[in-house]
Design a binder for these strands. Sequence first.
DNA 1: ACCTGAACACCGTTCAAGT
DNA 2: ACCTGAACACCGTTCAAGT
Lengths: 194, 194
Amino acid sequence: MAVSARRGTPLTVEEIRSTALRLIEAGGVESLSMRKLAAELDVNPMSLYHHVANKTELIREVCLGNVAPFLGLPPDDGRPWQDQLRALAHAYRRLARTQPALWTYVHNHPEVIEPKEGGLWDVLFRIMPAAGVPEDKRWRTADVLHGFVSGLLLAETLGHISADQADETYETAIEMIIRGLPEHRMADPAPEGP
Amino acid sequence: MAVSARRGTPLTVEEIRSTALRLIEAGGVESLSMRKLAAELDVNPMSLYHHVANKTELIREVCLGNVAPFLGLPPDDGRPWQDQLRALAHAYRRLARTQPALWTYVHNHPEVIEPKEGGLWDVLFRIMPAAGVPEDKRWRTADVLHGFVSGLLLAETLGHISADQADETYETAIEMIIRGLPEHRMADPAPEGP
DNA sequence: ACCTGAACACCGTTCAAGT
DNA sequence: ACCTGAACACCGTTCAAGT
């Protein structure tokens, strides 16, 4: 046929991306195949390659298009850094819960997202000075905080944490981090507050 | 031939497991294929199925055989709980650094290891009472602690943390956890209070 | 008992050919 | 410009056949 073997409309990258996301969330990234995706779109498997370079690039585009924007970064609204950190933590969890399969993939392939996870690091670096973390410790502190939070979210995503305790567990962890952050200044013998 | 197309010796599960581990650490779990493993062993791909049920089961056996024993759980030697927690954290990191590919797989497929990661949880539950964590909060606390530590180790495994800062970062995190554990007793979420 | 070749139902991707 | 079928080099796994 002239345009395609399916309904009149030609293939769009948008259509490819959204269908790929749906399949990924339905069965995990590892269950996505170009051939299944093509079948879902009622199209020949090879037609996809006219719109995306390859499978890796497709997954990367799905990540970039759906992870970063979703974070909806809390703006610097002048609230105390504790509240801003809570807001960031909740946005990050919302992402993990809304698109768990995609989030898991990004968690294990952080290189697909540059700059790092849509400004998440910008927000951290805005918060840390207010929390009294000395400048030379901020990169390390950011890594620890992100490792903490994403480790906990993976445990939740995997069902490792019972659903009825997940909210409470997450709040517990965030509060522990918030209290520990300025008190210990990530384990530095602390002078007095800001 | 009678015994095999390769050197006289017949295939052993031991040989299969150790070769699988080597391939996994060389290229990640996702790069292991039954056909490549067979090639590495100079044997027909189908011969493997006489010794292992399938690929999933093989990976599970490699995990069980190499992760749990490696932990070398610190015994209850009467030292302060802080020291015991440090010893556990270091054993866990040693595992992640010695077999990063296998550790990453287990991190994302915790169900393959039952009972959970070779008594790691037993040690945690031995430590928490000494740290003053009330009984009804111990499961939640254990999940948070494990989430924290494994999240940080994944960041290190992925190279997300610069190598020359990794030691210091890990120590920093462990000390923060040790100080935060009894002080806050994994405190109840502040904003959600009773 | 242990090994094997052929076969089946899948993959991602290339390439020349169709409209 | 966009789509397609055939083909290539891979997968995991089954099964009947070999020694």
